[in-house]
Simulated assay, not measured.
Amino acid sequence: MNEHISLNLHATAPLQAALYLDHHATTPVDPRVADVAIRMMVEEFGNANGVENTHGERAASAVAQAKDRLAQLLGAEPRDVYFTSGSTEAIQLAISHSIGIHRDQLRIAISRVEHKAVIDTALHAERLGMAAISWIDVDDKAQIDLSSLRSVLDGGIDLVCVMAANNEVGTIYPIAEIVRKASEYGADVLIDATQAIGRMPLDLEELGAAYVILSGHKVYGPKGVGALISPVFEYASIFGLQGAHHPTPNVSGIVAFGFACELMAREGEAESHRLAQLRDQLQERLKSLVPGLIVNGPQTERLPHNLHVSAPGAPNDVVLSRLRGKVSISTGSACNTGAQEPSHVLRAMRLPDPYIDSCLRIGLGRTTTAADVERAAVEIAEAINDVRSSFSGVLDV
C-alpha cells in the first residue's frame, strides 16, 4: 500500500511552488542560521544555567556572545539584553516593569496603530485597574500626529508606546523626536522595533528609550525567541512573579537569533537597498496591470520591503483565495488572522471602506528575486481583475 502511494507521488508532475511574499508575518530561517541552531542543539547542548561543567560553560558563553551580537547591531550594551520567547513576552515584561516601578496607576500613551500585542497588554492592565490609556492619533499615512502626542503628554504620561516602523503599511516613525519630547515630560518610551531591526538605522544608546522590543523570526531567525533591551529593567521590579527563578535559556534559539542579527548587521543595508528597488518595481508593475490601484501609507518613509495596496471592487478575502498555492501574501497583521474584522491600523488612518475591504499587504524578503516580482505582479493582478470581473457581473444582475 505504502509502495503504491509512493509510486503515485513520484509519478505526479511537480507543482510550481507558491511564492512567499509575507515576510512581515514571519521570515524563513536563513540556512546559515539553521546550521547554527542545529549545532547548538546537537553538539553544544549544555544548560547555560549549569556552569559547573564545561558543557554549561560553553552554553553560557554562547548566550553571552549572542547578547554581544544584538548589542552591536543596535548600539546597545550587552548587559541590557534580556532574552524572551518573542516580542509579545518582551512587551508584557516591559509594561509589567513600568507598572512595578510607578507607585500610582501607570499612565500609558499608545498610538492607535500599535501592534495588537502592545494594545492588548495595555488594555488588560487597564481592565485590572493598573493602568490608564491615552491614545495618540495618526494621519492618513499612519504617521504620528505630533500635536496629538503633545496634547497627550501635557495631560501627564509615564510611558509612551510607539513602533519604530509599522507592521502593516510600513510607515517609519520619528522615534528619536518622540523619545526627546517624552523625556521633556519625564516619560519613558517603549519602542517596538520588531519590524525595523536591520532595516533602518537604530542606535539605542543614542536613542535613550527605556524599553526596546525585538523578535527573532522577523530577521530570518527561529520562532520562539526575542529580546527586551532595556537599561532600566530589573526582574525584581516587575509587577508579577517573573524572575523569582530564572528559566532555562533557549540556548539554540538565542544563539541562532544572535547570529541572525550579525547577518543583518553585515548584510542588512545592501539587502534593504535591493528590496526597496524590487518593491518599487512591483508597485509600478501592479499599477500598470490593475486599474485604480491604491498604494497605502507613505511613499518615502517606509520599510524597504513593504508594499501595501488596495484594489477597490476586489474583496481581499476572495483575492487571497484565488492566490492560494500561487502567491502567499496577507490582508494585514498575522495577529488578526481569523478575527473577521477590519484592520485597526487602516481604521485609524481613516481610509474609506472600499480601500480597507480590498487591502493587501506584500512583504519581500532575502530570497525574493526580480523574476519573483514579475511573477507575483502577474498573479496578483490576474486575481484582482478576475475578482472584480466576477463581482461586477453579480452586481449587474
Rank of each mutant, 00 (worst) to 15 (best):
F45Y: 14
H97R: 08
R150K: 03
R324Q: 15
H23C: 13
C359S: 15
Y20T: 08
S310H: 06
D158G: 04
D120G: 11
P174W: 00
L74N: 01
A348I: 08
E44S: 09
N306R: 06
H97G: 04
E206K: 11
F83W: 10
A227K: 04
R322Y: 10
A109V: 02
N385C: 06
T88N: 08
F45T: 13
V397F: 15
P342N: 05
A125Q: 12
E126Q: 15
N167Q: 06
G240D: 03
M264P: 00
A13S: 14
I362E: 00
Y173A: 07
D353E: 07
F259I: 04
R302S: 13
V81E: 05
A76W: 00
A370K: 14
R107Q: 07
P291C: 11
E262T: 05
A109E: 02
E234N: 14
S215H: 05
Q65R: 11
M1Y: 12
V387N: 03
V189T: 15
S272K: 01
P247C: 11
A71S: 15
S98I: 08
Q281A: 09
G313L: 06
G155H: 04
S252T: 13
P291Y: 12
I329R: 02
A60K: 01
G224L: 02
C261R: 01
L19F: 03
C335A: 14
R180G: 13
P247V: 11
H217M: 08
H115V: 13
I136A: 11
S98L: 10
R375E: 09
G338E: 06
L202P: 01
G332P: 05
C359Q: 12
P201D: 10
C359H: 11
